[in-house]
Design a protein around this nucleic acid. Structure first.
Lengths: 255, 255
DNA sequence: CTTTTTTGTTTCATTATATGAACCATCGGT
DNA sequence: ACCGATGGTTCATATAATGAAACAAAAAAG
């Protein structure tokens, strides 16, 4: 692994919800030597990506990240565009809804609205979702080129639950079905007790750039709810795609 | 320079308003070899910090930055806290107002509201302001420990205009005066024709973390305006400091 | 269409940089 | 004062970064 990736890995660790703050903890979480970790942190700090509290010596994410995040958002306002649709959908069905963007081989959660129910699915912002084991991933693949799908299907597919598609064949079938259906379904393929439906967001050229997904406790994913939610994510994803293409569609209902 | 800093430098370049997008241009802007630049960009891309358009092969900032920026904002909501005050002040006086945060030895512009006048000062988000040559910098130093001020004053201070304080003595004097006055004044010390006043934002412990500044074309910075703007930035900075400390003060006027 | 120029990509010997085990310093608790 | 834990430092070694050159592929020019 390159040095740069190691440093960036440290940022990921610091971004976690219950991130370690001390040098020892960060080094342990990253699996690097204390010495290496410190050097990397200092270099990140010298560039404003990390701040070290001068008293406690704890490390924290730095202001440069906000600046860059804003710069990115300004050029490519995916969050700004998506967030209202995610929120509207979440409020309408009172279930957890989130949007993801593709990057670095996975889908990154960029926008989450949680259900207000006691029994709900909780997601972390920035969570990295594997393409083969989530509704979002399958939906993304269903909108991708066959070549890309194949490149993923050829890889070794990590096993998470009994229903994770880990074989080339089962993955291709799931993708195929999602493409025909218009939305993807995950029946606890990443985590026990969580079911999801998702649909891809596409850019003007028709290439998928991310997804919108609804995640609910499996016991609430009745066949009726499945169909209803499927139609709703599909509609929401299409609306966002339209917005990104510059058109401003009125709210629609189903596919 | 370490490899990590080089890679992060590339991100800074890509964040610029008129950033080069091609490999050659980026390499030229960074002053690195094409080969090195490419390797770094690919590593950044593998981590989602950069995206390469598969058709045009141009490089752009990636989604990971938005995720990290949000994570930082969540832990330390300086932008969220400051922005309303900056906007209110900008609207009230119809001049360019911006907030900065200290990091990596400089002040980073994190929030800008521009004047609506034809002749106005334009600032870039993320701009790095030198501590010795800006009103923000002087205000920050005026709220810092003498030891810190001295460590800056001892460095070689780059020359920008005729009024840039480049000697240890002139810098210390400017800081001293700002401390007594309650706000700092920059008379074209960074750029000809731009005058500013600024005051420091401090955390609960009284340590400075950033600044608020008003930047106006020098010809509008009359003695009367100077005093008025000075009192206003000072009040705004104090209000933000109060907010950060958890208190929610009503709007005040002068120091 | 062909030539020229520009831009992106790969290679590999050289060099610089990153690494981590061991060591030291500092702090907080008892 | 002692102990354990944590942050910080050193330096010989291993590893990774570098950049000149060669190559490929696309634009631009003729």
């Amino acid at each position: 692994m390159g040095t740069v990736s190691k440093a960036l890995g440290l940022l990921d660790i610091l971004a976690r919800t219950h991130a370690p703050k001390g040098l020892t903890g960060i080094a342990a979480a990253a699996g690097f030597d204390k010495s290496t970790t410190r050097r990397l942190l200092l270099e990140l700090a010298a560039n404003g990506y990390v701040v070290q509290d001068s008293d406690s010596r704890d490390y924290e994410l730095g202001p440069a990240l906000q600046v860059l995040g804003k710069a990115r958002e300004e050029r490519f306002p995916l969050y700004r565009t998506t967030q209202p649709f995610v929120r509207a959908l979440a409020e309408r069905i009172d279930e957890t809804v989130h949007a993801t963007e593709y990057g670095a081989g996975t889908l990154l959660s960029i926008c989450i609205e949680h259900s207000t129910k006691a029994n709900r699915v909780i997601l972390d912002q920035g969570q990295k979702l594997p393409l083969h084991a989530t509704a979002s991933g399958i939906a993304f693949l269903a909108a991708s080129t066959p070549a890309f799908v194949d490149s993923i299907a050829r890889k070794s597919l990590p096993h998470f639950t009994a229903t994770t598609p880990t074989s080339r064949h089962s993955l291709l079938r799931a993708v195929q079905e999602a493409a025909e259906r218009g939305y993807s379904i995950s029946n606890q393929s990443l985590e026990e007790g969580v079911s999801s439906v998702a649909a891809a967001i596409c850019n003007q050229a028709g290439k998928p750039i991310g997804t919108i997904a609804i995640a609910v406790p499996t016991l609430r994913m009745t066949p009726k709810a499945l169909v209803e939610f499927g139609a709703l994510v599909r509609a929401a994803a299409d609306d966002v795609s339209q917005h990104l293409a510059g058109r401003k569609p009125a709210l629609r209902k189903a596919s």
